[in-house]
Simulated assay, not measured.
Amino acid sequence: MEPQLRPGAREAIFAQLDEAGRAEQVARRLTDAIILGVLTPGERLPSEQELARRFGVALITVRDALVMLRDAALVETRRGREGGSFVIQTDAPHGTLLQSRLRGLAQVELSDLFVYFSTILEGCAERAALRASPADADRLRGWLHTAPGSGAAGARATAGGFLLELAVLSQSPRLVREHIRLQAEFGPLLLLALGDPQARDRVAAGNREIAAAIARGEPLAARTLVADQARELSEWLLAAKTRTERGGPLYAAVATA
Rank of each mutant, 00 (worst) to 15 (best):
S85N: 12
L5D: 06
A227S: 15
Q4V: 15
A205S: 06
L220V: 14
R70I: 02
A92L: 10
G80T: 08
L192K: 04
L69C: 04
Q107W: 06
E126M: 04
L191A: 10
Y116T: 15
L113W: 06
A253I: 09
Q4F: 14
G42L: 10
R78G: 10
R28Q: 13
P249G: 07
A128R: 02
E165G: 02
Q183P: 01
L97F: 08
Y251D: 09
A27I: 00
S85V: 01
A193N: 05
V254P: 01
T90F: 08
R141Q: 15
A193I: 09
G21K: 08
E185Q: 14
A167E: 06
R22G: 03
E178C: 10
V75E: 03
A52L: 12
L190F: 09
G149E: 03
M68L: 15
E11I: 04
V57Q: 09
L164I: 00
A167H: 03
I120H: 12
G187P: 06
V38T: 10
R243I: 09
S100R: 08
W143A: 04
V57E: 10
A125T: 07
R44L: 14
L97H: 04
R70T: 08
F186A: 04
G149T: 03
T61F: 03
G123V: 07
E76D: 12
A106H: 09
T146G: 11
G37F: 01
G160T: 08
S111Q: 14
P148Q: 07
L192N: 11
L189Q: 03
E43V: 11
A239W: 01
S100Y: 00
H94T: 06
